[in-house]
Design a protein around this nucleic acid. Structure first.
Lengths: 243, 243
DNA sequence: TAGATTGTTAATCGATTAACAATC
DNA sequence: TAGATTGTTAATCGATTAACAATC
């Protein structure tokens, strides 16, 4: 859709659903490499990522033809191609706003560092937290009042919001005004931002709510007998007792 | 698709995409109620949740006809219906495995408690952590060796895995063997589990990777001139220099 | 060559959305 | 009644998937 002008190299017509799976493949390939695997078939990769085999092949075909028929994909080469596509051959600078339990956990989260994300600052507005050193980090918690100056100075590529919900939108606005165009939001609210800014919402409670929904379904199914006859009887009884 | 037998009350043919948005509507409705709003239109709700208005109406119609034409939806009533559908009129018991930074942050995460999730235990295998009291929690960190006994005793409805990636699959297997059917996994690996078990994967690093992908696109677009002529020139030069 | 596995086609499925009749 | 807004239809879009020709 985007970028259909000219004969220039097609700047990513990769579907969103595929982009969201590339990190999954990357993770699996890293493990395969660590296990000294040289090649991998689409079916193996599918098994490791719980994705359909045809879908794996389709996804990878968007990046180009990096497989060999009858053989599979070269682990090292495919890993490089995916990492390049995801922009992980460069390091990304991340600013975290909010040094509560979650903010601090994210600041020292190994999964960021190992994937090329450097936490350049952690901000908070609580005087008790400002100045505190974070375990496993060089920098101390900075004051949220300095947000603009710090963005200016440290040039983060993206920001993480881990503040209370009450201030999240205001922090978002300030980040956008500073020119930040990628925001990962953990506050349980949908942030309003201009179109050119990408906001990804992660709501940890929401994930549990979805689990609860399906758990409830299971409970209903267990108490609701499986056969049509009994279901029918139950619904007649329900109608009767409702009168 | 599921549950098309008999005249029994249709046990949720609600599309997955709709289920995933119900908590969003619920959150917005709670805020509207706190702001003393009595009714809300689909367009208002759409604005608050960054969802298309027609989609809001379609989603809500799966729950039944709870709106009034020309007026909108009763905030209190719709909130109740959504909460009921999501199973949030009952409390859910949650077991957390892993008392590292993330596990501890989750254990005291307000977004769990306020939405009816009670953390009944936090487990770890590190002797230094076992027995430690968690801030804002009644219980101390228990030993992961007691997992089976604790599930038996505390009867959690779902479990959260916040362990290192190396032990995540093994913990998952043990949870499944104990009869846990809903698992929220924060370890960066795709867990293998039987079909009747629902596993939701949350990979915090993955979210940043998707942001990085789009950030990279933006950078390419910025350096790649916008006009067809120049794009064409560039690609000719690329071809030349490649020789 | 025979066997294996990719890359792509085409059918299908599920989700999104504009439009509007129904109706408060 | 006039104005507003729901609930639903139907068109469209994007994603998934089986199947298989291409080819190593």
């Amino acid at each position: 859709m985007v970028n259909q002008r000219s004969g220039a190299p097609a700047l990513s017509d990769i579907p969103d659903a595929t982009v969201a799976r590339l990190p999954l493949y990357q993770r699996a390939l890293i493990r395969l490499r660590d296990d000294k695997a040289v090649t991998v078939s689409s079916e193996e990769l599918a098994q490791l990522t719980a994705v359909n085999g045809a879908k794996v092949r389709k996804d990878l075909s968007y990046l180009g033809s990096y497989g060999v028929r009858g053989v599979g994909y070269d682990v090292e080469y495919l890993l490089y191609q995916i990492s390049r596509e995801l922009g992980l051959t460069q390091d990304w600078r991340v600013l975290i706003v909010g040094a509560g339990n979650l903010g601090r956990a994210l600041a020292s989260y190994a999964g960021f560092a190992t994937r090329g994300f450097e936490v350049v600052a952690v901000l908070d507005s609580d005087p008790k937290l400002i100045g505190q050193r974070l375990p496993g980090s060089e920098t101390a918690v900075a004051s949220a009042t300095d947000l603009e100056a710090l963005v200016q100075e440290l040039r983060p590529d993206m920001a993480v919001i881990a503040t209370p919900v009450e201030v999240a939108q205001q922090i978002c606005d300030r980040l956008v005004d500073c020119g930040i165009a990628g925001i990962l939001n953990f506050a349980p609210t949908v942030l309003q931002a201009p179109d050119h800014v990408e906001v990804r919402e992660v709501d940890l409670g929401l994930e549990l709510q979805i689990l609860a929904f399906h758990e409830q379904q299971r409970q209903h199914e267990a108490s609701n007998p499986e056969t049509a006859e009994i279901d029918l009887r139950t619904s007649i009884e329900t109608v009767r007792s409702a009168r």
